[in-house]
Design a protein around this nucleic acid. Sequence first.
DNA 1: CCCATATCGTTCGTGTACGTACGATGACAC
DNA 2: GTGTCATCGTACGTACACGAACGATATGGG
Lengths: 158, 158
Amino acid sequence: MRSNVAKKQHEPKAASSSAASRPYRIEDQIGYLLRRAHQRASAIFQGSIGDPNITPTQYSSMAKLDEYGELSQNLLGRLVGMDKATMQGVVRRLKERGLVDSRPDPGDARRTLLSLTTEGKKLVNRLLLNGPAVSRETLKPLTPQEQKQLLDLLSRII
Amino acid sequence: MRSNVAKKQHEPKAASSSAASRPYRIEDQIGYLLRRAHQRASAIFQGSIGDPNITPTQYSSMAKLDEYGELSQNLLGRLVGMDKATMQGVVRRLKERGLVDSRPDPGDARRTLLSLTTEGKKLVNRLLLNGPAVSRETLKPLTPQEQKQLLDLLSRII
DNA sequence: CCCATATCGTTCGTGTACGTACGATGACAC
DNA sequence: GTGTCATCGTACGTACACGAACGATATGGG
């Protein structure tokens, strides 16, 4: 059936698909939209958080350590929703920069307890001041009511 | 003596430094929610699209090539919202698997024209059948009206 | 006590995702 | 023509993100 298709280089092919009511377009699918929205949110974060070398996951991790105090690496990973293998890389980089310190758990030799250094505390407290502006900028195209709604809907599909 | 702090190690510190009205919690921020939602959507995709070796970006790229026919690498990247550097890796892997073919653009020596191979067409047409189920599963926690609303809100912050 | 099982952190491999830089090419001035 | 500038594809480095496998350590049952 497509053996005789003309070369319409930049136009979609005719909607010959069998979907009766809705034509399944990639750009309308939830996964695609989440990827794009996450891209944009990350870009805004990098540009506005106040330190271009701090990534969103590093920021989340430091904020959680600031909130809870000393935590095991594994528990921190669960709190910020990161795989333990991913967490390991994040923690390694934060330690290399002197923002996070670690010590063995005296009560459980399997665990490593993580905490912010003085420098880490200073940095995260500075970045946290910019956090609201980052979220505000990301949500700017929406009305306040829509913003609340989006946050609610997203939290319910996690 | 029961006020021992030993068991409190996994609770947040008291709100010693919190803002008065709005407590800015990381897990309520749009960037954090987008990251988590995207994680979950990707996991559902990998488990349900029908081929565990095909990633969401590869799927999007192949679907666009199926929809438009032959495209330059650069244009394909714009259509699926991917950086050209990212696109280059995606295309390389698809070519290595024999799913995508390329040839120089006869009219513009800078360009590479991409197209699906016969095998690529067969695969993407099979996967496209599972696409709706993937989206349905990802959106399952929401009512149909909420699903529409989420898609609309997401598309407006991209 | 001893063994099976589970947990914790690490390492490896694969695959995005982007910034930066680079060479080749094309378009457009002059 | 000859520059100048933008565009296209490529290469490299950094940072997620996850699965799989591994060793060390806990923990519970017998």
